[in-house]
Write a protein that binds this DNA or RNA. Structure first.
Lengths: 127, 127
DNA sequence: ACTACTGTACTAGCTCACTAATGCAGCCAG
DNA sequence: CTGGCTGCATTAGTGAGCTAGTACAGTAGT
């Protein structure tokens, strides 16, 4: 697990995102145990509560479930809900960006143009 | 000037955005005076410093210039830089959203699909 | 000069998100 | 039944961002 301490995005969110991505990618399979709060906290050099908070998102979304005294486990449909989670997060970000742009008087085609520029900048020419 | 006090976006940013939009739209022309700090502060029912902070963005970007004792005025190329400002802001938001999505393992085409959905949701079918 | 406006600078308080500290409660192997 | 692991809850501290209060400095009409 790799955490950027100097980032503006909070630690708990960085953890949550990486775990969610790992589940979506099948690194952790349904039924499989996730690293415990304290173990992961030790790894990331952070308080267990911070890790707990990271898992909270995944718990609410039903991607993982918890058993007191045993640990945290990937839910039956965890792989799917994890993927949906990332999509939902992206949709939110896009919606807000577009709404702001509209409020600032931009037209849809201008936004489309900037979007294409951005996605090429991030992904390169290919893909 | 319309301010949403219950919004999560800070007042100074709401003010700055609306002024920038107005300049970009030509409501305030180059050379023209903008509402003074105290007048605008009284209008929005907020401290003059908050308005000052809103103007700071536009000052740094060169969209407006200030003359102590006289007021604030739209710069010669204010209309252009105001438009560039909104575009830059959108580009930033899109870049971040796309970078996050990529980090979460999404492919470019998935992102394109969600973008199209979003822009239709915001602008409706037309435009 | 006086008055009434303008922008500017410094300080202070306030709120909220984030993180940590600490203790409680359940499971299980020895 | 004890030690060592698990998740959970409560409380506190810390820091950054936002807003307000107040005083200073320049312009201009009277």
């Amino acid at each position: 697990m790799k955490i950027d301490a100097g980032s503006h995005v909070p630690i708990y969110r960085q953890i949550a995102d990486q775990i969610r991505t790992a589940i979506a990618a099948g690194v952790y399979r349904p039924g499989e145990a996730l690293p415990s709060l304290r173990v992961l906290a030790l790894d990331v050099k952070v308080n267990p509560n911070t890790v707990q908070r990271a898992y909270d998102d995944l718990l609410r979304q039903g991607t993982v479930y918890s058993r007191r005294g045993k640990g945290l486990f990937v839910a039956e449909q965890g792989t799917v809900t994890a993927q949906q989670g990332t999509e939902k997060s992206l949709a939110r970000a896009l919606d807000e960006a577009i709404r702001n742009a509209r409020a600032a008087g931009m037209h849809a085609n201008q936004i489309r143009g900037l979007f294409n520029t951005s996605i090429r900048r991030v992904y390169g020419k290919g893909d």
